[in-house]
């Protein structure tokens, strides 16, 4: 007997929720209980009165599974709305990484040069290390980190994806 799982497309979901205790556990519990993927998840309070949070989830699955994920999220009591940013038209995605690189000589110079190409900022430096701050799509961040591995990468911290639809409207 073969046990298989279906692969699928990447989707970015923007979920507006009540900013209340346990909400994140509710969302992640749903994903683990139903066997859905989470590639990245970010959450922060977004309203002036601290009543609402926005959760950005990057997930993947065949269309029917994505449809179920949205429906399942939507039926949670503290969830206000769920938007699949791919359906909402063009959108902007960004991620920030802090990348610590240590080394001297040629490697150190190469790291700085590559950082410049990627428009990464130096946010901390010692005689033997840099911390770079890089902002961009996950793809760009991935590529930068891959290059830094060759230049003495010692540590990485990433925020995960935040995303928002283009244009004047709110989702």
């Amino acid at each position: 007997m073969k046990i298989t799982t279906e692969a699928g497309e990447r989707h970015v979901l923007a979920v507006t929720v009540d900013n209340e205790a346990g909400i994140l556990a509710k969302i992640t519990g749903l994903f683990s209980a139903r066997g859905y993927n989470i590639e990245s998840l970010t959450v922060a309070d977004i309203s002036a009165d601290h009543a609402l949070s926005r959760i950005t989830i990057v997930t993947s699955g065949p269309p029917a599974v994505i449809d179920q994920i949205i429906a399942q999220l939507d039926r949670l009591v503290p969830v206000h709305n769920v938007v699949d940013l791919a359906d909402a038209g063009a959108h902007v995605e960004r991620e920030i990484a802090l990348v610590k690189v240590a080394g001297t000589g040629e490697k150190r110079i190469e790291a700085l040069r590559l950082a410049d190409v990627f428009r990464a900022k130096v946010v901390d430096t010692t005689l033997t290390s840099f911390i770079f701050e890089i902002t961009g799509t996950s793809d760009k961040v991935d590529r930068f980190i891959a290059l830094m591995r060759e230049c003495g990468l010692v540590e990485v911290g990433r925020t995960g994806v935040v995303a928002i639809a283009r244009g004047a409207e709110a989702v």
């Binding site: 449809d67 429906a71 399942q72 939507d74 039926r75």
Partner: peptide, 11 residues
Amino acid sequence: IDRSSINKIVP
């Protein structure tokens, strides 16, 4: 009444 019941098992 629950949208997640629809298309869950049978399209």
